[in-house]
Structure formats: structure tokens, C-alpha cells
Amino acid sequence: MQAKKTLASRLLLNAFIIALGLGMLYPILWLIGASFKPSNMIFTDAGIWPKVFTAQNYREGWKGIGIVGFDTFFKNSFIICLLSAFANAVFCSLTAYAFARLKFVGKKFWFAVMMVTLMLPSHVTTIPRYIMFRNFGWINTFLPIIIPKFFATDAFFIFLLVQFIRGLPRDIDESALIDGCSKFGIYTRIILPLTVPALITTLLFSFLWTWDDFFNQLLYLTSPNRYTVPMGLRLFLDSSGMSSWGPMFAMSVLSLIPAFTLFFSLQKYFVRGIATTGIKG
């Protein structure tokens, strides 16, 4: 009797979770379905499954606007995101190693400064940075978006890596130091290999946040051949009427694929990133 009751309540609980989840994901599922529907059926059909299947929206959308297609937008987004992720992983881990392991005068002070920058709204630096990069002749290049990452400006990742490195046993690098290994040697040969899980989290979040960093792309990229995927979508939205919602939806679906793929292949690294600090989203 007791077992029956728990089985029933278990099924009910599962059904409830699935129903709520589907309700929540309905807009996204509808978007995916709509991207395969012929244009005239998108806004008459609230169902997910297309009654008539077509890939026309994808063919048309991929061509983009004017002479610039989504192949260019995707290429630009990938260049910016890969370089940013790489730079964050290298330079944030270098900084994190210093804060977590090395001794130097003023360490507490600089660490406190770093933590303050973590909470700082980016707006207070936006305008002077824009003026500075404009003077460098960097407008309409990828540099204003990428270069700051070479200077470890994303304090979130420093904090994440410091937390991780502090958790590693100290005796390994202390014995390496006694054996005459240099600080840089300890960093590359001992700390980096042991920090791989946190580095993957860093790469992952850097990539995704840069992908969605619409504000900076809007500010610095001014001509369509430099546009990223989000900018391409926006261009689409502004320059087309009702007729091109199909292609618009198709390209929106494509733009979500990288995040989706990374999430499902590297799920456990996500949890670490979110659990360390819940800053974004």
C-alpha cells in the first residue's frame, strides 16, 4: 500500500515537473518549429510541429542583408569569442596564481581592489574607454572588445580561479620550489594542469558572455562586414518588414546553437561557474 502511494506520487511529481518545464520552454520550441514553417503560416499556427516543412527560411536568412551574409557574422563572432576566451583563461589565471599563491607587499590591498572592480557597473568606464579606443583608431575593429581581455579585466574569472587554486594542496608547489623550480615553472607545470576544470569553466563562460555582449558590439562595430551574429540579427530586425520573420527566426535558432552545444557537452563546468558567484543572469 505504502509502495503504491509513493509510486503514484512519484509519477505525479515527474509529470508536474515535465509539464511546468514544457510550459516554460514552449516559446523556444515554438521558435524552432516556426523557423521551419512557410512564412504565411508562422503567425497563424500556435503549434510547435510545422504542418508543412521548409528549409527556405534558412536558405534565405543565411544570405543576410545586402552583400553581407550570416557566414560573415558567424565568422566574426567566432573570432571575437575564441580570442576573448583564450585571453581570459591565460591572463586571469596568471593573476589568480599571484593572488592565491605568491607573497608580495600590498597583496591584501590589490586583492580588495580586484574584488571592488567585480561589483563595479561597467558604465563608469564606458565613455572614457570609447574615447580612448577612438583615439587609437580602433572603432569598427574587434580590438576594443578583445584587447581588454588581455589585461584580465574580467575580475569574475580571477575570483573563480583564485578560489579554485586556493583549494589545491600547497605541498606540491612548495616541494617544487625547494627543488629549485621557478615561479613561472610552478605556474605552467603544476598550477595550470591542476586548474584545468576551472579553466574550462572560464573558457566556457567567456565565450558565451562575449557571444551575447551586445552592448560593446553595438558601440564599436559600425559596418556590416564587421558585424557579429547578434548585430546581424538586429540589422535584420530593423531593415525588414513582416515578410522576413521566417528567415529572422531561422537565423535566431542558429545563433543559439553554440550556447546549446556547449551547455550540453560541458554541463558540470557550468554548475561550478554559477555556484562560485551568481553574478550573471
Binding site: 591572463f91 596568471l94 593573476t95 596564481y97 599571484a98 605568491l102 607573497k103 608580495f104 590589490w110 581592489v113 580586484m114 572592480t117 563595479l120 563608469v124 568606464t125 565613455i127 572614457p128 574607454r129 580612448m132 581588454p148 588581455f150 589585461f151 584580465a152 579585466t153 580571477i158 615561479k183 605556474y187
Partner: peptide, 20 residues
Amino acid sequence: SYAFLIPWLVGFLGLTLYPM
């Protein structure tokens, strides 16, 4: 030790403190 901190320090001074 400071050698490891240089990229971040330069970034902090040039891209955060000075702009602020």
C-alpha cells in the same frame, strides 16, 4: 611576484581606474 600581476595591474590602471 609582481611580474605575474603586471597584465592585471596595467589593465586596472589603464582600463578601469583612469577611465573612472
